[in-house]
Amino acid sequence: MSTPVLTVEHMTMRFGGLVAVDDLSFTAGRRQITSIIGPNGAGKTTVFNCITGFYKPTTGRLTLTHENGDAFLLERLDDFRINHLAKVARTFQNIRLFGGMTVLENLMVAQHNPLMLASGYSLAAVLWPASYRRKEKEAVELARYWLEKTGLIHRADEAAGSLPYGEQRRLEIARAMCTRPVLLCLDEPAAGLNPKESEELNELLVSIRDDEGISILLIEHDMGVVMKISDHIVVLDYGRKIAEGTPEEVRNDPAVIAAYLGVSDEDEVQEVIHEQH
């Protein structure tokens, strides 16, 4: 198997006295869908924020490796450089679109860095706009590709804020894909979707993995989505990894069942974990 796209080693994140993530290590395979699951408050989004640079982990090392062998230490990069250089794109739990801009404009903003370069940092293009037109057309084509793929092409010229919820979720994924990422991090993409939309999301994610060859890191509560499409699952509880494996392994793991269903006695949980190892 090729090298994993993301390796997280001994990552700890403290907020004052609160330990949100405690000595977490895992890897995300290339061209695989890796899911992070766990009860509310388990520290899943904190892990995401550390990977995408919105938080700096207290300790630990996060290595992102490109297919050509280039490696980036994510804990040392600014958030916007993680997207620009390391090619990690993300979506947000509470959707963050540019509501007053059209769907197409949202996807153009996502291609900011290559377009900046093409427009001579906007200086050349102010004086001579024709020089930049070809590159802009290419950017529109990429946007059109993702709009067709996410079924939003008929909405291209509408304000992003006026779209229904499910379409906003898809647009956020399309926008992240327009940055041409190596690793796509999705924070609860199925939240608030109806079963049909959920099914479409599954197809989209599988297509991103299989057709585009992009690795996906997924936080999700919807087990229908997680169990069906994940290649690898990491289970967190109270900031610690309590289990890891294929969907089948995780589904039958007593520690996971205990964490989700609740076990009255703390010792009992420890016992269950001991049995597992």
């Binding site: 995408t52 919105f54 958030d79 916007f80 450089r81 997207n83 620009h84 794109a89 993300r90 947000f92 963050r96 679109l97 540019f98 509501g99 007053g100 801009m101 404009e105 153009m108 903003v109 996502a110 291609q111 900011h112 860095n113 377009l115 900046m116 427009s119 940092y121 906007s122 293009a125 102010v126 930049y132 926008r175 992240a176 940055t179």
Partner: peptide, 24 residues
């Protein structure tokens, strides 16, 4: 131009901008 769209995107949501590789 890209810089102008980035200005407006920054006005709409700065965090989303940073997640898209725009240097704030």
């Amino acid at each position: 131009l890209p810089v102008g769209r980035a200005w407006e995107a920054m006005r709409e949501d700065e965090i989303a901008c940073r997640s898209l590789g725009i240097n704030p």
